[in-house]
Simulated assay, not measured.
Amino acid sequence: MKRLFDLCFVLFSFVIFCVPLLLVAVVVRLTSRGPVLYWSDRVGRHNRIFKMPKFRTMRVDTPAVATHLLTDAAQFLTPPGSFLRKSSLDELPQLWSILCGDMCVVGPRPALFNQEDLIALRTQYGVDALRPGLTGWAQVNGRDELPIPQKVKLDVEYAQRQSLLFDMRIILMTLVKVLRRDGIKH
């Protein structure tokens, strides 16, 4: 049922966002050198590494670490980068990862390949058995501002409570957070 929901969500989203996807791609291409998409190595279900696309918001010479770990992340942003992040438009290409089955709409956000502490805790508590999501329970309850143990605690809570109704609640909470730009620094 969850996979069917994910596929319907992606198809509906492609129809709604096809023009914004094209416009963002053109803006990214025209405002900075490098590819339109950034393919990030992420940890998926059962700790399998997959390539997750995002619209590129950082310069091509940016170190491959979580943005909040950069000393001055703003110096690496492309001209439209801040807007794309605050509006979450940079996340739209992840619809491809949902379509391919590497991600789902709601689940724990996929860890970067080098976030060993997060990966280890998720594995310890069985969260690695879940397919990562475009949004998730931890995402709507603090995003990157959460310490890793709190994030994993929320991921575990999601694993225990997951249902179509709970996913719908998280999607609605995500829309509100995106519109308010809550928890977004850059």
Results as ranks from 00 to 15, higher is better:
Val36Asp: 03
Gly133Tyr: 11
Leu118Pro: 15
Pro20Val: 00
Glu145Ser: 12
Gln139Tyr: 09
Ala73Glu: 00
Lys151Val: 08
Val19His: 01
Phe83Ile: 03
Lys177Leu: 04
Gly44Tyr: 13
Trp137Pro: 04
Ser82Met: 06
Leu77Ala: 03
Cys18His: 10
Leu37Asn: 10
Pro53Val: 07
Trp39Thr: 00
Ser97Phe: 03
Leu4Glu: 01
His46Gln: 14
Thr174Asn: 10
Gly126His: 10
Gln150Asn: 09
Phe55Gly: 08
Val10His: 12
Leu118Asn: 12
Ala66Ile: 00
Leu21Ser: 09
Trp137Thr: 07
Lys185Met: 03
Ile49Ala: 09
Arg161Ala: 07
Thr31Trp: 08
Leu130Pro: 02
Asp72Arg: 14
Val36Arg: 08
Pro110Ser: 04
Arg59Pro: 06
Val156Phe: 15
Val156Ala: 14
Leu70Asn: 00
Val15Gly: 14
Leu89Met: 14
Arg3Ala: 04
Ala73Ile: 03
Glu145Tyr: 04
Glu157Ala: 14
Met168Thr: 13
Gly136Ile: 02
Asp72Ala: 06
Ala129Phe: 03
Arg29Thr: 06
Lys151Asp: 00
Asp128Val: 09
Phe76Leu: 03
Arg48Cys: 07
Val26Ile: 14
Phe166His: 10
Lys185Val: 01
Asp128Glu: 05
Met173Trp: 14
Gly81Lys: 06
Asp41Ala: 13
Leu134Glu: 14
Phe12Glu: 04
Asp155Met: 11
Leu84Trp: 09
His186Asn: 11
Asp72Asn: 15
Asp72Pro: 00
Val105Asp: 12
Arg56Cys: 02
Val140Pro: 15
Ser13Ile: 11
Gln162Val: 04
Arg143Thr: 10
Pro35Gly: 08
Pro132Glu: 08
Val65Tyr: 13
Pro20Asp: 03
Phe14Leu: 15
Leu112Tyr: 06
Trp137Lys: 09
Leu89Ile: 03
Leu175Met: 14
Leu4Ile: 13
Arg122Ser: 01
Gly81Gln: 10
Ser40Trp: 04
Lys2Arg: 13
Lys86Ser: 04
Gln150Arg: 15
Gln150Ile: 01
Val15Thr: 15
Glu116Arg: 05
Gln115His: 02
Leu37His: 05
Pro80Gly: 04
Asp144Ala: 09
Ile98Val: 10
Asp6Phe: 07
Leu146Gly: 09
Val28Leu: 06
Thr78Gln: 11
Arg131Ile: 01
Arg169Lys: 10
Leu146Pro: 05
Ile16His: 12
Leu130Met: 12
Asp117Met: 02
Asp6Asn: 07
Leu21Asp: 12
Leu172Ala: 10
Val28Tyr: 12
Met52Pro: 01
Ser40Ile: 02
Lys86Ile: 01
Ala66Lys: 00
Gly81Val: 06
Phe166Arg: 02
Arg109Tyr: 07
Leu23Asn: 02
Ser87Ile: 08
